[in-house]
Design a protein around this nucleic acid. Structure first.
Lengths: 361, 361
DNA sequence: ATGAAAGCGCTAACAT
DNA sequence: ATGTTAGCGCTTTCAT
């Protein structure tokens, strides 16, 4: 690999040409012990200012780059946090991930990324690969699927934070919200707005499906047994929404029994429904009403503006990272569980209970 | 950290309770040398099947997890590839990143993520942090901004692949396309479609601005000196497009001199323009025409369908990862530069030169 | 505030 | 096909 064998043109300054510069080289050049350089690198404040300057000069001269691989081995602290996402391309998790990365990197940790996919096939492998790097912590965006994987992490060797869910049996720490509650509240709220005819557009994401199921059960309990459903594969897209509305219009006798309320498991799908409605000249919310999920940044900007369920992804990510950092700094030892909740946001794609007022629930 | 000090209920089997299981422990239990375990782990094929089974049994019994931190230190191969993204929240890079991650993880490498942001402030720090992990390679999505950073990488210590651009002085390997060419081709193409009145909506991403500049210069050379411009901060959003169109309509005397052709540096902004047009009842492409950039998955699904510049992000990512892997496997030593090009896609948000035909350029 | 010795857990290189 | 020896470059721990 020939690491930094020279600093620009100053090859001749190096004690050991052909080898990479080590902390020992820096120490020799600065006339101090290796341990002093290590201290300067990790906690400059415990080194005399004068000594620190000598060391820094030697570092600059050699172009030395700290080797945290060796440091991690010696100290059993990798300063690595593994973050597991279901999929990079689902924008739902972007804000959470950004917040996580922001706070972790600020605290001197680096992110090791793992993509779990939505099928639990290679999950065991992924976990092995992650653990083999000896991360100081793991943040799961979503949850691991197989019980084996979960038990594996429950040993307590590594702090784990689960996000985007409120599991009854968290592995360790957890910050999320109840998808069942979302489904229930949406149903109740939409019934309250007067809707009686419902359809559901979903992708086969496990949490979305749980929201959907809870939604349907709540409706059933209120005397609405039939809800048309379409479940698509893969990441939510506009296309799913457009296809979905088209499919629904074929099965629903046009606007008999009031407007059709279409509930989507993602803002992106909902946006597609709005698009297809516009393309067909269908009025929203008069003929068809739409509810999304996520309150992603575009939701307030669609036309008409999208009613949705707001999830504060940034706060969730930030909280997850904080919890983990606190544990790593030994401040909190116990398990932490935080429900960050959600908010129903009424915009223009659903009817207003009071036409003159917009309300945020 | 107490790494895997027990396997379920079998604590008593461990040679050294209280310590984490090491490769040596596995070796002892299996009755072989540590090196044999190492070989089994890294290249099972060079170990006798029978021996491998003994080792595997010992691994299963102890719950051993390979420590690649130690392995990396000993072998000077971290099997880590650092991937630098400008921003997690810009969906433009999602496909590229997904392709990169896919191929790398398949080849046994793990991704260490770095976010550069669009300002080059902490770039030097980011680089230090990355290099301190001794990655086997670095993939830059976009390019580092400061000359100092670039020179730092040019030492050749680590293979580097730059993507999403076609720099005249690549650090090492490169796969991208010419943003100047995009600007030029867009201008020429739109003039060919008959447009004479242009506006530009951009975010302050350096590459987008270069496309914009090239676009404007090409127009100027063809006798069109005035192009209205709005440049916004941050990641492209629908809101930028909606605000942008509103702002443009205030400065442009309505549809005098033919339709206004609005060129956006991102499909997302363009989508916002379409949305604002719909909200205002402005006909697209008759009164206002729109061109995006990226051909993200929603572009063909907007209403009207968005004309845009197609960039094959997946191919770019896959190619970048392949180049890097080839280098790491010693197959190719020289610098590789690949122009993956781009394609102008005419959909419904721009006028058709021949109304009966849709053409992909 | 700084130094010296020992070792983190693995693999390269050589030997058998 | 397997074993032995000697580190990789840092930090822990104890000393001064």
């Amino acid at each position: 690999m020939n690491w930094q064998t020279m600093t620009g043109k100053k090859t001749e300054q190096l004690p050991r040409p052909g080898r990479s510069v080590t902390l020992g080289d820096v120490a020799r050049l600065a006339g101090v012990a290796p341990m002093t350089v290590s201290r300067y690198l990790n906690e400059p404040s415990i080194v005399r200012v004068e000594t620190g300057l000598k060391v820094q000069r030697a570092i600059d001269q050699t172009g030395y780059v700290h080797n945290r691989l060796a440091g991690a081995l010696a100290s059993s602290r990798s300063r690595l946090v593994a973050v597991v996402l279901p999929m990079v391309t689902n924008p739902l998790f972007s804000d959470t991930f950004e917040a996580i990365n922001q706070r972790l990197s600020q605290a001197g940790y680096q992110v090791l990324l793992g993509i779990s996919g939505y099928q639990s096939q290679q999950e065991q492998q992924l976990l092995d690969v992650i653990l083999s790097r000896r991360p100081d912590g793991i943040i799961l965006t979503g949850t691991l699927h197989t019980a084996a994987s979960r038990n594996r992490l429950r040993s307590g060797a590594v702090p784990v934070v689960e996000t985007w869910d409120l599991s009854p049996e968290p592995i360790d720490m957890l910050v999320g919200f109840s998808h069942e509650q979302v489904g229930h509240d949406c149903a109740t709220h939409l019934l309250g707005l007067g809707y009686r005819q419902f359809a559901l557009l979903a992708v086969n994401d496990p949490r979305g499906l749980r929201r959907a199921e809870s939604f349907i059960q709540t409706l059933a309990a209120q005397g609405i047994p039939h809800v048309l459903q379409h479940v698509y594969q893969g990441v939510p897209t506009l296309a799913h929404g457009r296809t979905g509305l088209s499919a629904l219009l074929e099965s629903v006798p046009a606007t008999q029994g009031g407007p059709l309320m279409i509930v989507c498991t993602s803002d992106t799908i909902a946006h597609g429904v709005l698009t297809e409605a516009a393309a067909r000249g269908i009025r929203v919310p008069e003929e068809v009403a739409v509810l999304g999920f996520g309150d992603m940044n575009f939701a307030s900007q669609t036309f008409p503006a999208l009613s949705t369920v707001r999830i504060d992804g940034s706060q969730m990510g930030d909280t997850a990272a904080r919890m983990l950092l606190e544990r790593l700094q030994g401040q909190v030892v116990g398990a932490g569980v935080k429900d960050i909740g959600f908010t129903l946001v009424d915009r223009d794609s659903t009817a207003q209970s009071n036409p003159s007022t917009k309300r945020a629930w």
